[in-house]
Design a protein around this nucleic acid. Structure first.
Lengths: 101, 101
DNA sequence: TCAGATGTATCGTATACCCAATAATAATAT
DNA sequence: ATATTATTATTGGGTATACGATACATCTGA
């Protein structure tokens, strides 16, 4: 249940490397509200400390990307997430179809 | 990001009233692991304090159900959840289809 | 070169979440 | 009826996630 933010961050990074602000913006698109730096950077640091992501400087940005370990972990977490929330998803689809009628 | 547990509890209760142990079992089906009482009951208490659920005794069980306020809140949270995680869901479906081939 | 804009980092705090151990209760069998 | 047992609920405490506010660093353009 815990660690949804880290999960989403890794999911983003599985698409393409991003820097912190970019990740925050993606989350804003999703959630409607932008996480504050105090939310995003500690999470990134934590992921990095666990060897799941690496960072490299590019100009003023620090670009994060998944490590090999991170890729594996992210895939597993993704599969777990899919299975776990499948019943809710089905409900989402159902609700959507109902609205169409 | 936080409050996933409460969200799921309310989602369960939107289907039918349940007592604590039942909710824990539903979560076990979903997650694979059963939350301990110390996880579930504080969450229930919190929801009740916020007027989102009510409880009534039935035999040895305490059956929880959504209040009117809870129903409204739950619906909104559900819609929000659907919109927010839609891109991830799409990925889930994609991943599933790939496996079929 | 310095001002504004953008990106990054840190600190303190709240609380959701979680576990373990314990208590309470009802169902049961004797 | 009473004791036993199984099931359900409660409590207390610990931890990590997430948040807001603030401060720092770096780039860019005038």
């Amino acid at each position: 249940m815990r660690g949804m933010l880290s999960f989403l961050i890794m999911w983003f990074l599985s698409k393409r490397p991003m820097y912190g602000e970019e990740i925050a913006q993606e989350l804003e698109k999703m959630k409607g509200s932008k996480p504050t730096p105090g939310t995003i950077y500690p999470a990134l640091k934590h992921l990095q400390n666990n060897g799941l992501i690496t960072s490299r400087k590019d100009g003023r940005n620090i670009i994060y990307s998944l490590t090999e370990k991170g890729t594996t972990t992210s895939k597993k977490a993704f599969e777990y997430f899919c299975i776990m929330f499948e019943p809710v998803f089905r409900d989402c689809i159902k609700a959507k179809n109902l609205k169409k009628n």
